[in-house]
């Protein structure tokens, strides 16, 4: 399991736009580099990130080889109802990770 830093407010007012920031530990090996004895290092990147709010997509991104290691994403979502945010990263070599956070919406 890769280490993840998630910045998600635990509570929000109804209609408020909240900022969500996610950072995941991943080498993002491009597939274009060579190792110490000249062999090409196979590509190992995260291909896709998606965030859903109670199953409804709020943000997604496709990642590419030029993106730095430990990719950081910041995006916003409008808080409509109390629910669970699910963050999913998937990529090469069967990489798949999901984290969840609950956001309580008041008012």
């Amino acid at each position: 399991m890769a280490r993840v830093l998630l910045q998600v407010p635990a509570t929000a007012r109804k209609g408020e736009v909240i900022e969500i920031r996610v950072l995941i530990q991943h080498p993002m090996e491009t597939g274009f580099r060579v190792g110490t004895v000249g062999e090409v290092l196979p590509r190992d990147i995260i291909r896709r990130f998606a965030c859903t709010w109670d199953g409804e997509p709020v943000f997604s991104a496709t990642l590419h080889p030029a993106i730095a290691a430990n990719p950081y994403l910041a995006f916003t979502a409008r808080a409509e109802a109390t629910g669970t945010l699910a963050f999913t990263w998937s990529g090469d070599n069967g990489f798949a990770q999901t984290e969840t956070r609950r956001v309580t919406v008041t008012g």
Partner: peptide, 13 residues
């Protein structure tokens, strides 16, 4: 910002 500093991933580990 501890949420943006990738070094915190290592500290977490």
């Amino acid at each position: 910002d501890d949420a943006a500093n990738p070094g915190m991933l290592w500290a977490l580990e």
